[in-house]
Design a protein around this nucleic acid. Sequence first.
DNA 1: ATGAAGACTCAGTTTTTCTAAACCTCGACG
DNA 2: CGTCGAGGTTTAGAAAAACTGAGTCTTCAT
Lengths: 201, 201
Amino acid sequence: MTHRLPHLNGLRAFEAAARHLSFKTAASELGVTAGAVSQQVRKLEETLDVPLFRRLPQGLLLTDAGERYLPSITRAFEDLTRATEAIAPDINAKKFNIGVSSEARLVLPQEWPKRDKRLTAYVRSVIETNDIDLVRTDEVDCLIRFGDGPYGDLAVIAMPLVKAAAAQPAELHFVCKPGLADCRQSKAILESLDDGLSPSG
Amino acid sequence: MTHRLPHLNGLRAFEAAARHLSFKTAASELGVTAGAVSQQVRKLEETLDVPLFRRLPQGLLLTDAGERYLPSITRAFEDLTRATEAIAPDINAKKFNIGVSSEARLVLPQEWPKRDKRLTAYVRSVIETNDIDLVRTDEVDCLIRFGDGPYGDLAVIAMPLVKAAAAQPAELHFVCKPGLADCRQSKAILESLDDGLSPSG
DNA sequence: ATGAAGACTCAGTTTTTCTAAACCTCGACG
DNA sequence: CGTCGAGGTTTAGAAAAACTGAGTCTTCAT
């Protein structure tokens, strides 16, 4: 069976964008800019000659075709991921997808974590979110945010904020699944955060 | 669920190469050179850090890992193909994958069909094979070969060879599924063959 | 009004992929 | 043995694809 497929990167962009209903968030997940996702999706729509998204002023919606397309595509990528993990478990362990709440974002150094070279080996992508469930569903490996949970059975590491502003909580939380709390990746991220939050950072 | 995957083109190259157990044939199917497939597969093996092929002097074999990997990857690509065909049936209809037996190859013009510009819109790839079953399984859309079948229920269009050599059959056969016998693609290919086989070609 | 957010576009750059040609190894064959 | 053919591999350079960054637009909320 020879496969006749559109460009696979376009499919990937579509899948992420459709899942998030946002080019920007999809871009974060994929580690590229929103423009790149926009281009990829447009090209895909052109090669299929089928519109996949309805671009409304309020945001994105899927077209009927997109709606029908998404589940199969997601499933196929999940299958590829599973199969790959089965024969090469390490591909998993390599890089974290980090969630950062918009509030937490404000107290972190500019463009963190990109500027910190120690993290390049450990970080795949950073998306802006405050949704703890994304940790449970593995959409992100850790979440950096303010405020209390309830975190349930998740691991939480609190970091004091030295230069806390008046109306700001005094602690930043690093949330992840318990099993990930002290892997290399978490340690590297925490160390980097520590540096970034200290007065000299 | 964010997907952590190796480069998708590498996966594609692996899938085709593993199915054919030949980089050269895979390259034909994908419409690239054998070197490109070799590179893609090597890079995939590097990112997974798992060897997928055993390169023996006699040819390729899959490693255990490759053996386990292949079925899932093939299935995933088939799913992508099916889903794509479901929402964009036309992507299907566009280009033929042609099979040419090595004997037939000899009587065709050099580099046919690449040289014939009328065909670029209709031909995706050309692989060397004499296996009629590939027509049945849709691995190729048509097969150009010598000799009699049994072709069963397949459509056969015979073309007389004007300059038949002594030990050669006098007719070249164009074999395809009945439904494809007089679509635009078949017609274009037959016309090009006709020209290519005539004394002036 | 003003600002923020997100999508789009476009030119230019970076990265990836591909080709073409050389090389190497092995097996077949005279 | 030599020589040939068939693949696989490697390389530099070319071609194509993907990405960025900056600017624009629209809409919504203040």
